[in-house]
């Protein structure tokens, strides 16, 4: 059994969360509210040390770059929401973030989500020319991408060829969703195994690994 007080704290808090498997209870509620508070305090520090300070404050204090007063001013406008008469000023920082994020998103989405994916679908890897199985897989991926895209094409009624194509697209989508579901369940089970290893191994010392 561990003699480390931190291990005991972690173990007891983990048991508080697991107690929810029986039913909702005060121990679980305490742990849940503790998690919310600790996470909020954690992210407050992280955003200060990794966001506000290096990106705005240090430029003003250390480099005396007065240009950075503009984002500081825009950021402070968030608090206009607390003054009903001037609450509309909160739209200014939101407008800045929306504009820049949208502007950055256009070339990035085009490059990473469209061009690269289309390239990966159309251009076969050199290995597919030597192995018949790899060639079949490459053709299957090509057909899969086209049919899935046709399923999401709503500008024309799904009749005739488009209906057949979208039906094949559904097959690929269902296999994809099933695989994602299975993958997610396994990831959660892996987390559960990790917690049980911690409780039975690190804390109680019942299992060796």
């Amino acid at each position: 059994m561990s003699h480390d007080p931190w291990v005991w704290i972690s173990a007891i808090l983990s048991l508080f969360i697991f107690s929810f498997l029986y039913r909702d209870n005060p121990f679980y509620k305490f742990a849940e509210h503790l998690l919310v508070g600790v996470s909020a305090g954690y992210y407050l520090n992280i955003y200060w040390y990794n966001g506000i300070y290096p990106n705005i404050v240090s430029h003003i204090i250390k480099e005396h770059n007065l240009l950075y007063i503009v984002p500081l001013f825009l950021g402070l406008l968030y608090f206009a929401i607390f003054i009903p008469k001037f609450s509309y000023f909160i739209r200014w920082p939101i407008a800045f973030l929306l504009g820049t994020a949208s502007g950055f998103a256009i070339p990035a989405a085009f490059q990473a989500r469209i061009m690269e994916q289309a390239k990966g679908t159309i251009l076969f890897s050199p290995s597919s020319y030597n192995s018949p199985l790899a060639f079949i897989n490459a053709v299957l991926i090509f057909i899969g991408v086209l049919t899935v895209l046709s399923y999401f094409f709503f500008s024309k009624e799904h009749k005739g060829g488009l209906k057949i194509s979208s039906k094949i697209g559904i097959i690929f989508l269902m296999i994809g969703f099933g695989a994602s579901f299975g993958y997610t369940v396994m990831a959660r089970v892996s987390l559960l195994i990790g917690r049980l290893q911690f409780l039975l191994g690190t804390w109680l010392g019942l299992i060796k690994y």
Binding site: S102, I106, Q117, T147, V148, L149, F172, I175
Partner: peptide, 22 residues
């Protein structure tokens, strides 16, 4: 293979959606 094809189709659709919304 099939999962990758479905994900790629979705990703291209999301990319087009992102561009049009932006």
């Amino acid at each position: 293979v099939p999962n990758m094809a479905a994900k790629r189709g979705i990703m291209i659709g999301v990319g087009l959606g992102m561009i049009s919304t932006s």
